[in-house]
Design a protein around this nucleic acid. Structure first.
Lengths: 335, 335
DNA sequence: GGACCTGTTTGGACCGTTCCAGAACTCTCC
DNA sequence: GGAGAGTTCTGGAACGGTCCAAACAGGTCC
């Protein structure tokens, strides 16, 4: 049994399919009486427009693709939330793809997006293959094959002002009196920026010599391992600034396992102010870079570019804020 | 600049559009020489098929909609993972909608799905409006307007065997010697089942009198509040079985705040074995109901029904397993 | 040489919309 | 009563694919 089409509705209402189309798109110039007839027919038949047919004809899909790095990271979910609220308000739907997962499956998600002809593309976080994203943003054509079609935009995780946040965290620790501070670094561009922010502040305070950087990844496990290495070293730090909350929680566990009290023996700062950090039982001092807000801004920027493709891809920065909770304190005087 | 169509490719390769279509769909009866010509043209033009046009003509979208309750719940994400891996292997793409969010936005997500003509629908968790889902599953037509079109299937969170898991948890606590046990209940059908499982076991052990049920929700906050109420009551329980890990963590925080040691003064069991429970710093005893696995099964069942719509909507149960960690112990002898 | 295969290739209809040019009404005004 | 100006309404051409029946090209066989 086929589902009803616009023609079925037209027939039932005794009008032409064009009129039905007009009614459905809310045109003002149709007589109320006919409008009612059409709407009644729609109701009776349980008609629902076919999105594929519509976007084929309209040459746009009212859909934007969101390429996410890892749905397990609460910060991304929060950003997604902000993104959605703004996009939905403009009648766009959101198509989600988990890059991490796509990679595992060997799928090229950007291909999927170009086949779907999404009206826009939002890439959040550091992605495995930025070049592929740019290609997709250029309309799926190989680089140089033409100007990017309207409305595609590549939005980096940007806006967080990663360096700024890293500075805040580091200055907080130094302000508490810590001298020997370690940083658990993340991967990708953002990881790089945050690390540089950390190092810059340490240098400015003449503490380069006692700044340690340990490579982690973005997971709890990575943070745990990195911290075990840090605390096992001869001259152990009194404070750790982790790339994100997940890593921060890993660090917390490592410290606890080694018999160190937090924040008594070791201060700890995370990043992102995810609900993890807010769990009363963890109560992690962290940097809040307002995921929801960033999502909203990114969406707005994309909308602007869809409206006016010529618009430059500006980068709006939000100011991160330090959220001081229970995992930071002055170092032991004995230290 | 329009993106190239199949006709552009045909022209460039010097063949008809039908031949291009054949090549792209991997037909065997095309001379290798022509195939090469077509593929070369595809490459040169950077051609990508248009999903909308394809699904309009094929009358299917190779897309299944997933209606999720809350992306912030790690268990759902895990399930999604399993779902995706199985669906992708069958060439289906997944369209995600966060029901919680949709509700907030006033959007009826099932409408979106019917407009998109998804080939299947997976509803996970307890949803705000089950009736709407069923309507969508019936092809968007109002109930009774016709037989459901092929391939729509409503898959409940099912498969978890919620009662079974609740039994495991409760029996574990009783086995440790606890008598006065409380349950923090969740909403919806699953919450109901889990609560009943808990109550049944308590009754079987003649402990109905000392079984307390406190309503929570599925969040940390809800678990926290419920626990504060429980522990503030005159005859406080020595063990708490929470509806899920999030609530469990809330309970943990509440206990700590009231000066109770876990598991010394209070034992605690969660549900779902999410990464939260696995965080070394929380190390929550919990019931594992294998989200990834359930996702895979649900996907497989949906695939079966797409292949053979007549197939009955069987419910496959997976056996939950208790994961004993650090939050459960025998009660204080003094108790 | 024609009938009859088999393996390739093709034109045209169709999927369900939107869009557009123009037809068909309805008023107003002289 | 007809010209002119709005309003409403309509048919047909897109949109970019798939599908199918029929055309075509070579062989093979009598």
């Amino acid at each position: 049994m086929r589902s009803p089409t616009i023609r079925d509705v037209a027939e039932r209402a005794g009008v032409s399919k064009s009129l039905v189309s007009l009614v459905l798109r809310g045109s003002q110039q149709v007589r109320p009486e006919k409008r009612r007839a059409v709407l009644a027919a729609v109701e009776e038949l349980g008609y629902r427009p076919n999105a594929a047919a519509r976007s084929l004809s309209e040459r746009r899909t009212r859909t934007v693709g969101v390429l996410l790095n890892d749905l397990r990271n609460p910060w991304f979910v929060e950003l997604l939330d902000g993104l959605n609220s703004e996009l939905y308000a403009s009648g766009l739907r959101t198509l989600l793809a988990d890059g991490r997962q796509g990679r595992r499956l060997g799928e090229d998600l950007t291909h999927t997006f170009t086949e779907l002809r999404v009206d826009g593309l939002i890439a959040v976080g550091t992605l495995p293959d930025p070049a592929a994203v740019r290609t997709a943003a250029a309309g799926g054509a190989p680089p140089g094959a033409g100007p990017p079609p309207p409305g595609r935009a590549h939005v980096g995780r940007g806006g967080g002002g990663p360096q700024r946040g890293a500075r805040l965290a580091t200055e907080h620790l130094i302000g508490l009196g810590h001298r020997h501070i370690a940083h658990i670094a993340g991967q990708g561009v953002v990881g790089e920026l945050r690390r540089r922010g950390f190092e810059a502040v340490m240098r400015e305070h003449g503490l380069s010599g006692s700044a340690t950087v340990e490579q982690g990844d973005l997971t709890e496990e990575g943070g745990y391992r990195a911290t075990v290495r840090l605390l096992g070293a001869p001259h152990r730090p009194t404070a750790v600034f982790a790339f994100n909350d997940m890593a921060g929680v890993g660090a917390l566990s490592a410290a606890e396992e080694l018999g160190l009290r937090v924040p008594g023996d070791l201060s700890l700062v995370g990043y992102d102010n995810t609900y993890l950090a807010r769990l009363r039982h963890l109560w992690l001092t962290t940097v809040d870079n307002a995921g929801h807000d960033i999502g909203r801004r990114a969406a707005r920027r994309l909308l602007d570019r869809i409206a006016d493709p010529a618009r430059p891809g500006e980068v709006a920065l939000t100011a991160p804020v330090l959220e001081v909770r229970g995992t930071t304190a002055p170092p032991r005087p004995a230290d």
